[in-house]
Design a protein around this nucleic acid. Sequence first.
DNA 1: GTATAATAGTTAAACGCTTAACTACTATTT
DNA 2: AAATAGTAGTTAAGCGTTTAACTATTATAC
Lengths: 340, 340
Amino acid sequence: MPTLAEVAEKAGVSIATVSKVLSNTPYFTEETRRKVMSAVEELGYLPNLAARALSSGKTHLIGVVFPYVYEGIFTDPLVQYILEGVEAECNERGYNILLSTPRLNPDGPDENYRRLLRSSYLDGIVALDNVPLSSVLSPDLRKNTPAVAIGYGDHPNYVRSDDLQGSTALMEHVISLGHRRIGILTVDESLHYSIQMRHVGLDQVAEEAGLNYAHLPKYDRGDFSIASGMQGASALLEQYDDLTALVCINDRMALGAIQQVQKMGLKVPDDITIVGYDDILSAQLFSPALTTIDQRAPELGHRAAQMLFALLNNENPDSVVIPTQLRVRESSAPPKVSRQ
Amino acid sequence: MPTLAEVAEKAGVSIATVSKVLSNTPYFTEETRRKVMSAVEELGYLPNLAARALSSGKTHLIGVVFPYVYEGIFTDPLVQYILEGVEAECNERGYNILLSTPRLNPDGPDENYRRLLRSSYLDGIVALDNVPLSSVLSPDLRKNTPAVAIGYGDHPNYVRSDDLQGSTALMEHVISLGHRRIGILTVDESLHYSIQMRHVGLDQVAEEAGLNYAHLPKYDRGDFSIASGMQGASALLEQYDDLTALVCINDRMALGAIQQVQKMGLKVPDDITIVGYDDILSAQLFSPALTTIDQRAPELGHRAAQMLFALLNNENPDSVVIPTQLRVRESSAPPKVSRQ
DNA sequence: GTATAATAGTTAAACGCTTAACTACTATTT
DNA sequence: AAATAGTAGTTAAGCGTTTAACTATTATAC
């Protein structure tokens, strides 16, 4: 690959002049520009990005971080949409994306990841940070690099989906339909801040309606998967056969639950209401179509990236909470009089 | 950030010695190692990756490239699985992923992307390269960097899904059920090599069964979306109301087609058979569950990455064609006698 | 007891760029 | 006409590594 020096020689100027022309720093003539550009053209010169990074301290690389919280993390719709949003913003500004998916150990994210972050090789970071046990953006890790968190970690700059408002709307919907015997299908809440927030929302609405949330039948050994939704529904209904509604912490578990109760001979929503959270593609396509919460994930990625670039621009952007949208579809209905 | 020089000073040795210790290059005493390591520890030294890249010529960065062929490219299941497979392999070897999603213009991928590739900043590239109009891995672009293509571009090293075998199996399934009046829902084949291959498979099997493929009713203005599947089904059935089967070029169009024919009062599969290609999550969950082709996308990513690392290791890996698997589900059945 | 080889460490060049500091010249101001 | 400011370009230092070439010391061979 040709270097600045070769271009300079061919153009008959110094390498500083070439650098100036290429970076449009003032003080050169049109004549010089032409000489330089035609030398660049002829040689097919391209700047060496490593050298540029070393010299300028800027890599034009944005880290996008998703902790590896479960197998198949890239099939998580949240991940897809965030990636899409961040990519769009970066592409527009000529930045590249370095994708990192650290494995989480009890003592923090993996070594490679920690080195990467602390080495300040990245110009900025957007991280999905919702795992209480091990933050991918702890103060120690992010101190060298501007960062935006998507989630509930304790960061100065964050973008969040309004899980409280979403779960509130979901539970209000179910209760306003007339349901009182409600089962909850969820996961270990220590896994996720946003799940914790959803619980808070469910709890508040339940209490307001005179239900003791802590005493509602609960299956909390799910892992977000369809299979664990089936298991959960099966376990709950075996023990509490009078439930008229199942509120699920995500769509995949809800879809599993629907399949399971149908297998058990119940009709959704006639015999039992089932609702989810996320509004994945299958939620609309499934029969019955799933009542769920759209957390508008594409927005999360866009806003997070915009905030990061504002930060890089030395502005002081405000953190953002993005409201969700209840999608009422076919899987929820008032309880049957006979089972009520 | 502390540098090698500071570590060297603190440890009382030269920077070359520190470098040797850190890279485990022979010829230092245990005593020296201890001094160096404790200096590293105390200062919290981390290598400057830009400097390392400049000096060594290796960035430890693998480019993963998906051309931006349509909006929402990251929700494409193929993309997700490939990303997942490549990430797993890179993570294991301590490489990072640079994600690039070039926009395609008639005269090639966008400028930024071309500069990135030709600048040889990446140690290697895995690219989804299936767009005839504009390769993201043309000889000109990849000449500086080892690369593996996923797709049908003319590359020395590639991984492909066996679209010919997949489409053959799909069409054989439909025809062996007894269907003769078959409609095809597809997209402009100039968009995609793998779509072209699927057409070839459908064609061969049709001809073998005595059907003239070119004369089969065809809707080819789809764009992979559910909506275009609905449109296509509607358009075809309006003109040819005696069709007993619709073969769709991907699952999302197939799911759209099913919804459309149901809306028109037809039952799937009783009145009409509909099959897809891809085996996305919704294909299993949909009711009726979709008969389709599983192209085992996770394998594509894994194999491509393995091949790339073999290349980096100066081996001569063979290109790979990965067989697909027919998934027979509920949406296909023999034609009704009355409509046959 | 000398030649040879192996070990331990240092020096300094190289990677290719950015940019502060400088020179030299021309144009403007007073 | 001298002082000042602006323009065009050069020189050289610096970014933080890696690594080839070197020196110095110690061990081994004969």
